[in-house]
């Protein structure tokens, strides 16, 4: 038993070191457009000052374009939806990993 635990811990530690290299970024904001041909989503970023009137944060006016070629997209984003996107920056490209449709899958209601 002790040997198994030790082995598992060594394995986990190895993977921890392998994966600690960099972290993906997260952005949340309003969807301005989803170009299905070009595989891009344009988002107006919101900040993290949540309040009861601004439960998704306040608009910052910053617009970003995300490449969603390889992203896992949940419920189809439409302009006006609040999206949360995890992405990596590659050069000038923002490559999305996952796109969450915050508006249309309000988890709190499930």
């Amino acid at each position: 038993m002790k040997r198994i635990v030790a082995l598992a811990m060594a394995l986990a530690l190895g993977m921890l070191l392998a994966a600690a290299a960099h972290a993906a970024e997260v952005v949340q904001g309003k969807c301005l457009g989803f170009d299905q041909a070009a595989k891009t989503i344009v988002v107006e970023e919101y900040d993290i000052n949540f309040s009861s009137d601004f439960k998704y944060g306040h608009p910052t006016g910053i617009q970003s374009t995300f490449n969603v070629t390889e992203a896992k997209i949940g419920i189809q984003p439409e302009p006006g939806d609040i999206l949360r996107i995890a992405y990596n920056v590659q050069g000038t490209d923002k490559k999305a990993l996952k796109v969450m449709n915050v508006t249309k899958q309000d988890l709190r209601k499930k």
Partner: peptide, 20 residues
Amino acid sequence: AADLVVVADTRVLESGVMKY
């Protein structure tokens, strides 16, 4: 029917372990 994708909001997390 569509898969529900969940993105953890790492922007609001401060602790290193939680963020990791």
